Amino acid sequence: MAGMRAEQRAATRRALLAEGRRRFAVDGYHDVVLAEVAQAAGVTKGAAYHHFESKAGLFRAVVAEVQRELGERVAEAAGRYVDPWEQLRAGCRAFLAAGRDPVVRRVVLTDAPAVLGWDEWRAMDEDSSARHLTEALDALVRAGVIEDQPVEPLARLLSGAMNEAALWLARSEDPGAPGGAERALDRLLSGLRTRND
């Protein structure tokens, strides 16, 4: 009996997250009404408040879910390569490509910093995809592929550049924009390599 209730609670939470995700991506945070999300998910408004406390709580959970998936996408792309340099390039390219995903664009790149605030958004980003970047750069510095330097400022600079490029790609109607962004990224990354590499 307790197992069935836990399963039902989990199903309710998943339904609210799925509907919230869809609506936040299409309508944007400010135009979403929690009661309408609950109704569309087939649950009561009380259930929505029980699971998430507020629209902001639901949004925070959706952002965390999308960022986790984005981190997994980046890690999966990097994991296709053995060479650490190619892992870095593939992970960065996967992050840029994710900017074309309407959910990532609207929820993570556009609304999350404004709704959650910069500090909370950065902390969530750090827990998902940003830590992969830091780990990759640290491995490359230790291997001598990248000049010896503090990794944290380098990771933040590169992360900021990629977030900005992903936003630009998301808004661009130029069909050549993704290729141009990848070439620019490759030039930026190649500038990090040691001269004797």
Rank of each mutant, 00 (worst) to 15 (best):
G42E: 06
L58N: 10
E36V: 11
Y49E: 09
K55E: 12
A25V: 04
D27H: 13
V33A: 08
A38F: 02
R73S: 14
T44W: 03
R68G: 14
H50E: 12
H51T: 07
L70H: 01
R73M: 07
A41L: 12
Y49W: 14
E72L: 14
R21S: 14
V37G: 01
K45E: 14
A38Q: 05
V63K: 00
L34E: 02
L70S: 01
H30F: 05
L34I: 07
A47I: 11
G20P: 06
Q39P: 00
H51Y: 12
G28M: 10
D31Y: 04
E72C: 02
R60Q: 11
F24D: 11
R68Q: 15
G71H: 08
A47E: 13
K45W: 06
V63N: 01
G46E: 03
A47R: 06
G71P: 05
G57A: 09
G46H: 08
A61S: 10
A40V: 00
V37W: 00
S54C: 06
E65N: 02
A56T: 15
K55Q: 15
Y49S: 07
L70K: 01
A61P: 05
A41R: 08
H51S: 08
Q67G: 11
Y29K: 03
A38W: 03
R73F: 01
Q67N: 14
A64T: 02
K55G: 07
R73Q: 14
K45A: 13
R21A: 07
E69N: 13
E65R: 08
E65F: 00
R21T: 04
A41D: 10
S54M: 05
V26T: 13
A47V: 15
A56M: 07
V33Q: 09
R23Q: 15
A41W: 01
